[in-house]
Amino acid sequence: MKASDFIQGMKEINITGPKVAFHFDIFGVRINVTETIIISWVIVLALTLLVLFLTHNMKKKPEKKRQVIAEFLVKTVDNLVKSTMGERYKSFGPYIAALFASSIFGSLVSLIGLRSVTADYSTTLTWALMSFVMIEAAKIKADGVGGYLKSFINPLNIVSEVSTPVSMSFRHFGNVAGGMIISSLIYFALTGLSNAVGLAVPVFTIGLPAVLSLYFDLFSGFMQAFIFIMLTMIYIASAKTEE
């Protein structure tokens, strides 16, 4: 029961970025294949299989449960898009659904012990840039190229445009990565506390990390996915307001 034991238990903390699984060279450029990329591909495969399973052998009148589930999901997303963006942006439904699904699965893989895909800044930055291109395209479509360029006469507008993807990606990344770091810090602190008291089995780690995981993984992951798609929809829809 010494202070040094407590600190000894804390020494095992190592919070790093995603590990590099392997790398290869293309034209002398080193390309790292990280944990994030592999887990992302697994998620893409899982989502594809899930969608294929849900929409397999559909009937005009639903007979199977899975078709009812698929119809419910599509209808929910369509209603959300319609109520947020209006009737004429209905075609954005699939993009929004795909973004939401990959974001929520990317955050929730931490529940099965893998590293969250969204705790890597490259992932959220990619999504934010995709949304950014769509927002700018919607603006150009609404005002025409001339009108779009005219809005940059005031140089402050450039800053506000550029800050959109930065703030969207940092928000998602910061929430998930922060949750991961706080969870692991508390887990290691509780292990160290158990060691310091002299227990062979770290009993203190039973309750609290699970509750924190419920908040940081489930609630925060769901919330950030929802906020990401909401902001995308609001920005795209607000490109064309003055009529």
Binding site: F170, Q224, I227
Partner: peptide, 15 residues
């Protein structure tokens, strides 16, 4: 919730 998430962003930048 959306407003809270947006208000949180300055804190997230600092983080």
């Amino acid at each position: 919730f959306i407003g809270c998430a947006v208000a949180e962003s300055t804190g997230i930048y600092a983080f």
